[in-house]
């Protein structure tokens, strides 16, 4: 087990390293365009050269990469072109805002979708199963931007119950959180529900469930002790990987509701060619994605004695 964890962590580090090389190649390979982005298009070649000289851009490529990587690892991402402050200063507050949003989504979505999935999968083809399955297909079919528009139209325009933006201008407000959280939960719970259901359905057809029934165990014990323990292994991985999808959804939702989070920051940076901010945001989002994947892999092995003891 310990060897496996070390292996996974090394693999994670290798992935991050490769991503950093890709990113460097994509954005930093030609100093000319870096200078243009940093100093703006209306600067003279001399000005750019001076800036490049001062920031060491005329050194050999691998030296520049290692230097860049060193700064990245220490959290020194450079200065944001748009915000005129060090990237870290804008990045961390935005990241914590998004963590609040994502955390709320997970806290609501996970128990909800697991419960529905297990209920549906316990008896395949029952009316309850069909209803839950259809409901989860419908909600996963409505993309986040569409449900944002539809829910905003309903709750803000027609009913006037909720605010249409979530800028948190006057401090944290639960009311402003409702719509963003709702949109993300709606889109994401369906997938987890369907995966949980599929896993449960599969487990319920297994001979060991039949054996448990024929041992005369009460139905509750068959479900809770024998079925769930197996059926929840797959959804665990799905939920961890869902965090990767959540990062995509967060961009859309924060953009629509003007929530000051990491997603809208990344988008803003991209649209404004804010080079160092893009780099920082990309590395952070890949770190989160790869990190949850690593956790998912380790958790999967931990939950599965068949792999744990072989």
């Amino acid at each position: 087990m310990a060897r496996f964890i070390v292996k996974r962590l090394l693999f994670m580090a290798a992935t991050m390293l490769t991503v950093s090389i890709l990113l460097f190649g994509l954005l930093e390979i030609s100093p000319g365009s870096v200078a243009t982005k940093v100093l703006g298009p209306y600067t003279s070649q001399e000005q750019r050269d001076l800036w490049l000289e001062a920031h060491g851009y005329f050194r050999p490529l691998h030296v520049r990469y290692l230097d860049w990587l060193g700064h990245l690892v220490q959290g020194e991402f450079g200065e944001s072109i748009r915000f005129k402050v060090p990237v870290a200063e804008v990045l961390w507050p935005r990241l914590s805002n998004t963590a609040v949003l994502g955390g709320l989504v997970l806290v609501i979505m996970v128990p909800f979708s697991l419960a529905l999935g297990v209920l549906a999968g316990m008896k395949e083809g029952s009316p309850l199963d069909r209803t839950i399955s259809l409901f989860s297909i419908v909600t996963t079919s409505v993309p986040e931007f569409a449900s944002s528009v539809i829910l905003a139209a309903l709750f803000v325009f027609y009913l006037g119950l909720l605010p249409g933006t979530s800028t948190m201008a006057s401090g944290f407000s639960w009311r402003e959180m409702v719509l963003p959280v709702l949109v993300l939960v709606l889109y994401d719970f369906g997938y987890v529900t369907r995966m949980t259901r599929a896993s449960m359905v599969e487990v319920m057809t297994r001979p060991y469930i039949r054996t448990a029934v024929l041992k005369g165990l009460p139905h509750r014990r068959v479900i809770f002790r024998h079925a769930l323990r197996n059926a929840l292994i797959a959804p665990f991985t799905v939920i961890m990987l869902q965090i990767n999808w959540l990062l995509s959804g967060v961009i859309v939702v924060e953009f629509f509701f003007a929530y000051k989070g990491f997603g809208s920051l990344l988008l803003e940076a991209s649209l404004n060619q804010d080079l160092f901010l893009i780099e920082a945001c990309t590395m952070v989002s890949v770190l989160v994605a790869v990190g949850t994947q690593t956790l998912a892999d380790i958790g999967y092995v931990y939950l599965n004695p068949r792999i744990r003891f072989s």
């Binding site: 060991y208 054996t211 041992k215 005369g216 599965n304």
Partner: peptide
């Protein structure tokens, strides 16, 4: 009646045992 009066043994033993529970627990619960 099941398990106490009438017990069943299936073919393919590996699929009849719950993979995530220790053998002891599966025996003791009866």
């Amino acid at each position: 009646l099941r398990g106490r009066e009438i017990a069943m043994v299936d073919q393919d033993p590996v699929s009849c045992l719950n993979p995530v529970l220790p053998i002891g627990e599966q025996l003791m619960e009866v």
